[in-house]
Structure formats: structure tokens, C-alpha cells
Design a protein around this nucleic acid. Structure first.
Lengths: 177, 177
DNA sequence: TAGAATAGCGAACAGCGTTAGCCAGGAGGA
DNA sequence: TCCTCCTGGCTAACGCTGTTCGCTATTCTA
């Protein structure tokens, strides 16, 4: 049993930057998150951001860390509240992702900057899938299903947006032994 | 039973551009596909591309069309060659995606420019999932599983890259009634 | 043969991430 | 008290991106 990871400690200025970045990301989407815009929200000039973060990617890594931590907490809560429950786990996954779509996409789409993330965070966030299936390969497959459904929903790839609840139910049913 | 869609007809110059774009995309990845680079490969200047395509997105839409058509063909072939076969379908999906990773990602990640795509193409490409499951919701869930596994594999999100075959088997097993 | 459409071109614009060089203020030590 | 060094700002600028503008040469049509 791994212990809940903690957020990386940062100087107050750096913390301000991450907070502002998150607000921009969630309120206006990933395209709005530019270094100049971020700097303006903090009240400085863009080049000054580089006194606190080496690259834009490093700022994003801080956001990814937040996203994975929060998603992981939601999943652990769903599974801890009395074992198994594939259905429960999927519901928690979907809800956590859809309430912060831009953050979810940033944290799960594209390659991970693993070096800039706290070690163990990724594994800890994925653990609930193992707890719900009891098998590492079924766990990975279930995670794939969850991510696939969420990302396709976020990207509006399903023909009828109306009945996605039934799609999720069908997915959960497939993984109920 | 829908009929196989055909590629949108284009002027020879436009076809040259799409061909060059595809070569750049597959050989050097999505970041290498810039309008200046594309123009250079065709032997013209970047602004001249806009005599043939209104935006870069339109060039990408032409590539997406190719990607969906080829993926669809592979899936239909896997299902037609004697019914059902969730396992067969997933294997065909994985292989088609991994042999053209950049094209697959372009065609399936992010929102679709549906207006610039031939009507019916998307539905036709997804049909094999219905043929393999016999149920629209199970079909969508199975598609989600396939896409999730592929995109996570492409993005190197799984801890152990070694045994992904077992993950795919576990996924197929879950959907074998 | 005149006119229009086509498809090239170079110059330029705004926005992006990022680098370089400069400078004010504060902290620590002699 | 003075000197030095570090921190965190600043402006200017670079190279890149997609894209627009205005011009021109060729080709097709009436």
C-alpha cells in the first residue's frame, strides 16, 4: 500500500505562477495558456517567468502533477469506500475528468515529462485499477477503457452525445468478471 | 451495409501537396509538418499553398480522411473474414495504428473537422465494432478500449512496455461475451 | 484578340517560446 | 560601513509559426 504523494514544494512566486496557470487553463482552455498571458496574470513580463521555471513545459508539469494527484485521490476514494466496484471506479473517473477537462487532457494526453514528476505519483494514481480488478493486465485494459471513453467524449468523437451513460454501463459490464 | 467511401478527388497539385504532407508526417512526425516545410518539399513557397487549401487544418483534414479510410479498410477486412472476432478486430486495430502512428494520432486525437470530411466516412470506419459486438453501446465501449490502448501505447503511458500483448488479450477477453 | 481566372512570388504581420544583457534591491561578511 | 553577490525584475530581440496582401506571368475562354 503506497502512501498518498504530496505536491512538490515551491517558492511563493512559483506557486503564484502555477495557480495563475491553472486558472487560465481551466477557464479558457489550453490555447490561452501562453507565457505572455501567464506573466500578465501574475503581473510580470514573460521573460521573468524563466527565473522560476526553465521552460513552459515545466509549468505544465506542475499542472500535470496537480491533475494526477487530484484524479488519484478521487479514484482511491471510490475504491476504498468498500472494495471492488468497477462501476464505481469508472463513475469516479469520468466525473473527475469531465469536471476539469483541460487539466485532464493536459495530464493524460501526449508523452509524460516523467523526470519532472514526483516518483511514484503515476503508479499511485493507477493503483485503484489494480484494486478493482486484482490483475495487472485487466487493470491496464480497464484503465485504457476509462481513458478512451473520457478522451473520446471530451473530443466529441461519439456520434450521439445523448446516451453516453449506456456506453459507460456497457464498458463496466464487460469488466465485471 | 454501407459501401466503402472513396477519397475526395483533388487537382493534381493538391494531390501532390497531400502526398508530400503525408510523407513528412510519417517520416518526421507531426512537428515537422509546417506550411513552409511542406511548400519546400512540393517546390513552391508557403503562401502558394493557400491557392490550393484554405488553411493548414484543411491539409490535415485530407490526411485524416486517408487515415480513417485505411483504418476502416483494415477493420472491415478483419471482421468480414468470417464474422465476430473481437480478438481479430482488436489485433487489426492495433496493427493499423502502430504502423502509422503519426497518422493515427492526427486522425483520432483532438476534435474532428467533420465538415471537411466525406459524410458517412466516420460511421463506416466504426461499423466493424458494431459487427463484432452486435450492440451499439458495447461497440462504443469496445472502440474506446481499442483507442485507449493504442493511444496510451503510442504515448508511452504504460509502465512496462514489454507485456502489452497480455493487456490486449485481457481487453479482448472482457468483451468476449 | 481582349479579358478573366489560375497559380506562382516576395514582403510582411501578429503571435509563439525563448535568450541575452542590463539593473535595482537586499543579504552577508570583512 | 562598505563591498560583493545573488535574486528577480526589465527591454530588446531572435527564429519560428500560420496567414494575408499585392503583384505578376501564364493560360484558358469568349
Amino acid at each position: 500500500m503506497t502512501v498518498t504523494p504530496e505536491l512538490t514544494a515551491r517558492s511563493s512566486r512559483a506557486a503564484d505562477i502555477v495557480t495563475a496557470a491553472r486558472r487560465i487553463l481551466e477557464d479558457e482552455g489550453v490555447d490561452a495558456l501562453t507565457m505572455r498571458r501567464l506573466a500578465a496574470d501574475v503581473g510580470i513580463q514573460a521573460p521573468s517567468l524563466y527565473k522560476h521555471f526553465p521552460t513552459k513545459r515545466a509549468v505544465e508539469a506542475a499542472l500535470i502533477e496537480q491533475g494526477m494527484l487530484e484524479l488519484g485521490k478521487a479514484l482511491h476514494a471510490a475504491v476504498d469506500s468498500r472494495g471492488g466496484g468497477v462501476r464505481r471506479l469508472l463513475e469516479a473517473y469520468r466525473q473527475a475528468a469531465l469536471t476539469r477537462p483541460a487539466l485532464y487532457r493536459l495530464a493524460t494526453a501526449g508523452p509524460l515529462p516523467r523526470q519532472e514528476l514526483p516518483p511514484g505519483l503515476e503508479e499511485w494514481a493507477g493503483q485503484p485499477f489494480y484494486l478493482a480488478t486484482g490483475d495487472p493486465w485487466r487493470a491496464q485494459a480497464l484503465f485504457s477503457l476509462a481513458h478512451g471513453m473520457v478522451i473520446l467524449e471530451l473530443d466529441d468523437r461519439f456520434p450521439d452525445r445523448s446516451d453516453l451513460g449506456r456506453t459507460w454501463k456497457a464498458g463496466a459490464a464487460a469488466f465485471n468478471r
